[in-house]
Structure formats: structure tokens, C-alpha cells
Design a protein around this nucleic acid. Structure first.
Lengths: 131, 131
DNA sequence: CGGGATCCTGCACGATACTG
DNA sequence: CAGTATCGTGCAGGATCCCG
């Protein structure tokens, strides 16, 4: 500790494990799944309806991964025609604020990003290779 | 507006566009790229060294996407043997806090997640289908 | 040094059908 | 209803070569 450890960096280093974890939590559907589950517990088909673009397979695999990572709990409610409820787990709630922040960030900056995209695409096919 | 619009939800709805944007910013490499670029501007091969696992192609495409989305600026420094510098753009800095939060979240919860994974995997092959 | 062009591969994701 | 099983596919991503 002779070195001045004054680096304010709260992120010492990003190991592959960290990346993997974030990948599994921030993947294509997990963010939305966690978002709606934060709102209230849902059943399988309720989730499908809440996220129309997701297919059954993707939803299943995403849910299982989230369950494996301790982000959601899979609760069998009844045993009659089978009823399963997915609810946010303790670990999942630690992500809630991040998710909200992420979603509101995207809402806030979507316009600016679209603007940047247009500028980029414009100058792309203009100053390119004139015959 | 006869309906009580008192939902405190800061995220009205997640449109596909929002998802797409987050996907492009939180994808496999962008998070790390933005993270190291937040620290200081880097050249192409400096980035490769900073993120050893990334290949040239992935880095190139990620950088171009980030550039297109206005997250990073691509600056030609010299013209001799060609020198290019990537630096975080204005839009990119709006993400900095989120990125830090995400990375520190993963650092904080990695152990708990690994624990949850073990439990999940254990009960998976134990209570399964005994012959 | 900073990439573009190509080829190849895996696997993420979708569509469809079937089960308890 | 809540999935599992199977098949098919696109495309992200790796490896390699090459160029200004």
C-alpha cells in the first residue's frame, strides 16, 4: 500500500466473470423480464403477453438463466392444471434501480442517439467513394 | 385522461427502439470499451491490449456502432503512419455513471450469484429422474 | 499502426409440434 | 397452462490474410 491508492475507481478490474454475469443479466430479454417482474409477479403466459416480441423458447431459457443466477424465483402456485409464478428474487431487487436507470436513460437519450445516427449515416454515403 | 394516470412509473413503456438502443450499448464489448474510454482516450491497439479477449473485428464493429450512436468520437490525430484516437463523446459521458454502477453491481454480487448458481445446479441433477 | 475483406463456426433465436 | 423436444437459420463473432 505504499502506492497512493487514491484512484476513485470503484471498478478494480473487469474480469471475464463480471462480463459474463452482466451479459446474462443484461441480455436481449432479461432486462424487460426483470422490469415487469419488478412490477409484480407474473405467470408464464402473462410474461409472454407483457413482452409480445419474445418467443416461448427465448422466454423459457431467459427465465431459467435468471432463476439460475438467483434473480427470479419460480414458484409453483397450484397443482391443478399447473400454475407457475415467477417473481423477482432478493438478488433481483438489487438490480431494480439499475434497470430503472437504464430504461430511463434510454428514454432520455433515444432522440439524441437517433440524431447522431442520422448524422453518421448521412456523412457515410456522401463523402465515400465517388466514381 | 379520465383514467387515473397516477402510475409513478418513470418508464412508461419499453418500445423496441429502447431495447435496441440498450442492446447496442450494453452488448458484449461496448460496456468495457466505454469503461476504458471513460478513463482516457485510447488508440485502436491500446484498446485491444486493454481488452485482450476482444478480436479486431469485434472491436472494429463495436467501435463503429458506438460511434454511430454518438457514444464515442473517432479522431484522426496524425496522418503519418496513421494514428486514430477514440474518445468518449458527450452522449457517452451520460452513460458513465450507469456503467460504473453496473460494474460495481457485478463486483458486489458476483459471489452471491455464483452461490445461487451452485445451488441451482445441485438441485438440478439430484431431484431429477432416478432410474 | 489501423483497419477492410473473407471465410467459417457456433449458438441464440424463431417456428412448429407434442406432452402432462 | 406451462413448458419440453426438434428442427432450421441468421448473424454475431473468431481466425486469417492483406492493404494504405
Amino acid at each position: 500500500m505504499t502506492e497512493t491508492a487514491r484512484t476513485p475507481a470503484p471498478t478494480p478490474q473487469v474480469t471475464p466473470e463480471h462480463r459474463e454475469l452482466l451479459d446474462q443479466v443484461l441480455d436481449k430479454w432479461s432486462l424487460q423480464i426483470l422490469d415487469v417482474l419488478c412490477e409484480s409477479p407474473r405467470r408464464f403466459n402473462e410474461l409472454r403477453r407483457a413482452i409480445p416480441a419474445v418467443t416461448q423458447k427465448s422466454l423459457t431459457s431467459a427465465l431459467r438463466r435468471l432463476e439460475r443466477n438467483g434473480m427470479v424465483d419460480r414458484v409453483i402456485v397450484s397443482t391443478r392444471p399447473v400454475a407457475v409464478e415467477y417473481r423477482i428474487a432478493a438478488l433481483g431487487t438489487t438490480l431494480q434501480d439499475l434497470i430503472d436507470a437504464l430504461l430511463s436513460w434510454s428514454a432520455t437519450n433515444l432522440a439524441a442517439v437517433n440524431d447522431a445516427r442520422e448524422r453518421f449515416d448521412d456523412q457515410a454515403d456522401s463523402g465515400g467513394t465517388p466514381p
